[in-house]
Amino acid sequence: MSDYILLIVACIFVNNILLMQYLGNCPFLGVSKKMETAVGMAMAVVFVLVMAGAITWIVDIYLLKAFGLEYLRTLSFILVIASLVQFVEMFLRKSIPGLYAGLGIFLPLITTNCAVMGVCLINIMEEYSFTQALVASFSYAVGFGLALVLFAGVRERIILARVPKPLQDTSIGLVTAGMLSLAFFAFKGMV
């Protein structure tokens, strides 16, 4: 049990996927200008990442490893993720339009979100068990969401501040992401 807690803390805070592992930065900077979109994106990532983590783990263990085809990992993972996202999108649009309106629009962004692919690969490289992979995927996604929401909060204020012209928008966004990353050093070494 405590192992899982450690894993969760490690994935959310210590090895935060965005701030410490540099994964998923494009959507991080893209959708963090407003709190609303940030929350939507965070939820969509949690949703997809858990599913992707589970499916890719199964694909890797029962298909690739079983046949000794590890070199096809990149190819098959991206295919699986892309179709999963598409599937979920179609499913939500039809069956749960309410939820689709909330996070459906963020789903396409996730295909090319390297955090998703990255976490799936990390799961395999760390040789997690299935439950561990699930927990790790979930926690990484929560970490992603947490960072995204915190960042959106800060960024909402920065957009209103008198930032010098050349620094505006992405530039100051990156610097602030750096500051966020700096703050996350608070959790360094805790696990």
Partner: peptide, 8 residues
């Protein structure tokens, strides 16, 4: 890419 300011 989100470059348009909209999600996707």
């Amino acid at each position: 890419c989100g470059g348009c300011g909209l999600p996707g």
